[in-house]
Amino acid sequence: MEALLALTIGVLVATAVYLMLARNILRFIFGLVLFSNAANLTIFVSGRVTVGAPPLIPVGADAPVGDVANALPQALVLTAIVIGFGLFAFALVLMFRAYSSLGTLYSDEMRVAEPREGGKT
């Protein structure tokens, strides 16, 4: 199972890097989404993929009894997904604004903040 997940992460990162190398910033942020999902999967696998009981603590005890699943990575991944969603929403709106006010989606044609020598934009 670990091997399969590791391969999945590898494929996700490779696809993400390919997309992020594009000059079209829309493709770039799609790559970014894949990349952040690869990071989330990394955290998930880091908590070890085990077949265990749910980590419930019996009444009166301080710790769960027997082999239970690791609950922490889920909490971490959930946090990361929520944050990632917020950032992605912002990035998407920013790209839309960039397209409507700069008139292009190609990063090498966006030269307003850093004009070329000679003042051509």
Binding site: M20, L87, A98, M110
Partner: peptide, 23 residues
């Protein structure tokens, strides 16, 4: 908006690398 695109994209990449490192 133009400066923002550069700032946002590069900082997001750094964030994801940081997250993978933590994992």
């Amino acid at each position: 908006v133009d400066g923002g695109v550069r700032y946002v994209t590069l900082n997001l990449i750094s964030t994801i690398l940081f997250l993978s490192g933590i994992g």
